[in-house]
Design a protein around this nucleic acid. Structure first.
Lengths: 191, 191
DNA sequence: ATTATCTATAGATCTATAGATAATGC
DNA sequence: ATTATCTATAGATCTATAGATAATGC
């Protein structure tokens, strides 16, 4: 039954990645530890050798998901030096993102769950939020660092709210209208 | 045991109001039917005489909460004819709202839960979202109805995302910064 | 010998229902 | 007679743990 130290580390990794996806898809309470481990190809009892609790996993999974978003944003910004912020905004506010929460923004998919979690989870997420603000601020317009930072925060908030709204409404036309309206409002020329 | 028809209607009402508050505070999975009924002063088994399922209650509770927000916005807009949208935005983006999700915006507190619910719940919420867009559009600036509507949607999205972010981060100073940055970005003069 | 994983289970909780109770409303 | 509420429980699920197993790594 026992596996190599390296295999154990890979198993832990797969649990985190699986949780990062499934928590975003179903919510923190939407899947139990047993089903989560089965999805990762492991058994229920093995979980507690890797994590102190299900909530401890939430902190790692949310952190992992947000780090991934940061990497993606950085790449997109580098690929669009003419309009880095616009490139991030357009990808974020796409129907593809709306329809695939499991690989999307953890803040819009898990924000409420994280807000109700303990300090370890919230601290881990706060650290990533700071990093994302700083990253978006690099691409945001403004005459000073403070202005660019404020613009970055406001842009991120609008994206998150748009995604929550677009996923909530049941009318596809209304959902697209929400994404388009917010994308337009965040367009540099539009403000 | 049996109560008057009127008392039964009041009991149903109290279940909806209790759920509207507790679901926003703890999330849909954060409280069970038994505890919910106890909080409402009733017993577990009585629930299913009023509602077909716990999810059916979510639809009514979310609808009720959003209708309440609409009423509050309308009153605030009437009280500030000089800056109706600003008045709504300032109240929404207040620390008091952040710290009291149970009586606050259902979209920011329950958006992800609603997005995962069935069509009955999502249709009920979609209807209210339309009403809120129309209400905010009355107060939004713009040269045409389409412009005002788009501005209303973008404003609502920014408010929701700001609240999700402000409740998620564990650093109070960062949380206030988020509320302030989004409030400033939505300020008529700021855009 | 250590340890990563396994099976099995404790104990608590969940939604939903069955059937009893007792007061209303015809 | 009807019905709103009650108690009690079925059956499923949940998190977490205990103890066995078996392969690694000293």
């Amino acid at each position: 039954m026992r596996v190599t130290r390296e295999q154990a580390a890979q198993n832990r990794e797969r649990i985190v990645e699986t949780a990062a996806r499934v928590f975003r898809e179903k919510g923190f309470d939407g899947i139990g530890v047993a089903d989560l481990m089965k999805t990762a190809g492991l058994t229920h009892g093995g979980f507690y050798g890797h994590f102190a609790s299900k909530e401890a996993l939430l902190g790692e999974a949310a952190g992992r998901a947000l780090d991934g978003a940061g990497d993606e944003w950085r790449a997109r910004m580098a690929a669009h030096p003419d309009d880095p912020l616009g490139a991030v905004v357009r990808a974020y506010l796409s129907p593809a993102h709306r329809d695939n929460p499991g690989i999307g923004c953890a803040m819009s998919a898990l924000g409420a769950d994280i807000a109700r979690a303990g300090p370890v989870v919230r601290d881990a997420v706060t650290e990533r939020a700071r990093a994302q603000f700083a990253l978006l601020a690099q691409a945001a317009p403004g005459d000073s660092g403070e202005e660019r930072r404020a613009r970055a925060i406001a842009t991120y908030a609008a994206m998150i709210g748009a995604m929550v709204l677009a996923r909530t409404v049941s009318d596809p036309a209304l959902s697209e209208e929400i994404l388009a309206a917010v994308a337009q409002s965040l367009d540099g020329s539009g403000r």
